[in-house]
Amino acid sequence: MSEFLLIFISAILVNNFVLKYFLGICPFIGVSDEVTASLNMGMAVTFVMTLTAPFVWLINTYILARFNLPFLEYVTDIIVIASLVQLVEMFIKKYSRGLYNTLGIYLPLITTNCAILFSALFLVLRNYNFIQSIIFGFGSGIGFTLAIVIMAGIREELEYADVPKPFKGAAITLLVAGLMALAFMGFAGMPSA
């Protein structure tokens, strides 16, 4: 049990996907100017990430490893992600209009969110088992959500700050992200999985 907790916490704080591995930077800069929008984006990412982890694990263990086809990993991973995203989109469009309205526009973007593919590759690299994979996927998603929501909170305040004109937008966002990464380095001393 403590081992699962360790994977979960370290995926959120110590090895935060955005601030340690630079994953999902495009939505991190693009969507993070409003708290609600970035919370929705984070939820969509967490949802898809938790779902892809078990599928990728099953395909890797029972098909690719068994038939000795590891070089197909990238192609199968990306197909799993793309088709899952498509499936989720169709499913919530049919069954939950409200959820579709909040998550809908972010779902197509998620196919090319590098955080998802990275989590798929990472759980194979780390030799996680089935349950560990799901927990890792979920924790990474929460970590992404945490970073993007904090960023959105800061950027909402930045609206009122007197930022030099050439630094407005992407430049100041990156500088703020740098300071956040510095703060998150404080977690590096924690035990991690």
Binding site: F22, P166, F167, A170, A171, L174, A177, G178, A181, M185
Partner: peptide
Amino acid sequence: GIMLLPAGAFLTLGTMIGIINILSE
């Protein structure tokens, strides 16, 4: 040391984008 860490990457790129905006303006 910070330049080799994640934080350094964000800071360097942010500064460079700002400088390039100034130049192109």
